[in-house]
């Protein structure tokens, strides 16, 4: 027998030996779990974004199998389509939920909101907001230091260099809510996506009195109440000098957009 053959046989034998050990170990320590979990995980987008409220897609899949209130679970990324698939795997039914999207409630562009100071610290909204109110006189608005852009796993937020504000990319946003958590000024809201006519929301979070707010930013909501009066469906409330539109009550009549003196109410019209 030549040496090559000895080597091949010897290594082969070692390989076989360990293969058997591995096989036995796999048999011995096998954890039994619902096969559905794997199937559901495959059906999920696999981004592990945490938008559903669980730590990852696997956890969400486990919850889908375990949960008695399956209807309440939603993968915001995959949306209804995915949930239908998941329901099919589990043999359950799902109730269609309205698609949602993140909206930025600040329109303090460089034009609207003059800068009154310069921030030279770390490029991080968290750092900046811990230090001071922002580089404009508005202490509620966007700092423009891209924490949300960094937090977005789907490239759905893009900084617009002209306005200094992040913009939501309509078809990329999965409304996972990462930006809501990332923004120290709490400017993002997960909003109903709306039907053909789009959505209407107040793009301002300034709770200062009207005159102060207006001085800091041209596009600020001054809490004048005109929109509240004109609204047919009682969707608008004003608290702390700031209007808020309840997306579920809003019928998208656009009347508030027309009466708003400062243009703080934004409408997004879908084409």
């Amino acid at each position: 027998m030549n040496l090559t053959l000895v080597a091949i046989l010897f290594l082969g034998a070692i390989g076989l030996f360990f293969a058997i050990i591995l096989y036995l170990a796999a048999r011995r320590f096998k954890v039994f779990e619902d096969a559905c979990i794997d199937d559901i995980e495959d059906a999920l987008p696999g981004a592990n974004c945490g938008g559903c409220g669980f730590t990852g897609c696997r956890n969400f899949a486990e919850e889908c199998v375990r949960s008695k209130q399956f209807e309440k679970l939603l993968c915001p990324v995959g949306g209804l389509e995915t949930m239908v698939k998941v329901a099919a795997i589990l043999g359950k039914e799902t109730i269609p939920a309205d698609p949602t999207i993140a909206v930025l409630r600040c329109n303090g562009t460089c034009l609207h909101r003059p800068k009154t100071s310069i921030f030279d610290g770390a490029i991080s909204c968290a750092v900046a907001s811990a230090t001071y109110s922002g580089d404009t006189d508005c202490s509620f608005g966007c700092l423009g230091l891209t924490d949300c852009v960094n937090a977005c796993k789907f490239d759905a937020l893009v900084m617009n260099p002209e306005t200094g504000l992040p913009e939501v990319v309509e078809d990329k946003c999965t409304s996972c809510g990462a930006c809501v958590k990332a923004c120290p000024k709490n400017l993002f809201e997960i909003h109903k996506k709306g039907h053909e006519s789009g959505r209407i929301y107040v793009a301002c979070m300034n709770k200062d009195k009207g005159a102060v707010a207006k001085k800091a930013c041209e596009a600020a909501c001054i809490g004048c109440g005109k929109c509240e009066k004109v609204c047919e469906s009682n969707a608008i409330t004003i608290t702390n000098n700031l209007a808020y539109i309840d997306a579920n009550a809003c019928n998208l009549c656009r009347k508030c957009v027309e009466v708003c003196p400062s243009g703080a109410i934004m409408e997004v019209v879908m084409k």
Partner: peptide, 10 residues
């Protein structure tokens, strides 16, 4: 009344 302090917060 409110006044912005050194950090700009009122």
């Amino acid at each position: 009344d409110l006044i912005p302090d050194t950090g700009g917060y009122k």
